[in-house]
Amino acid sequence: MQEDWIWGLIGGLLIGSGGAVYLLANGRIMGASGILGGLVDRSGWDSWKERAAFLAGVFLLPIPLYPLYRAVDTHITSNFAVIVAAGLLVGIGTRFANGCTSGHGVCGISRFSLRGIVATVFYIGAGGIAVILFRHLLGIV
């Protein structure tokens, strides 16, 4: 749709504001994979309450906003094998790289972190290749 980029920009400003609050108030980097991963492998267990409070906000706040947005259809594939493979790759990859779109992308690039920029180049490149391979060549997604 035509106005999608405006919603994208507004949403992006909100995402960045969340990262700014997490940094300036709590002194933490807002990285979704790090916040989750620290709970899963217990490496961040001493701050589990803070992590849980953050995740509760991520999960709950979209709910009152349903009426604001045009549609809540996420168009996720119905192929569960693809979903499981993708989930495993995202989980393993973000822990190896120590960051995902929010940590390396939003928080890293905004501080001109070389690691963040390199990670972003590689995950966008790999994402583009995955779409070409699985959509255009194999026709799976």
């Binding site: 790759l89 995202v90 990859g93 973000t94 822990r95 390199v118 490149g125 995955a130």
Partner: peptide, 28 residues
């Protein structure tokens, strides 16, 4: 960093989801 980002990006492209949005969309 490189290997992890490539694996992550591949999964991201495959499903169209990364960690943040996967949690935000759980309710719907």
């Amino acid at each position: 960093l490189v290997l992890g980002s490539v694996l992550f990006g591949f999964g991201w492209g495959l499903a169209g989801l990364c960690p943040g949005p996967s949690i935000a969309s759980l309710s719907y």
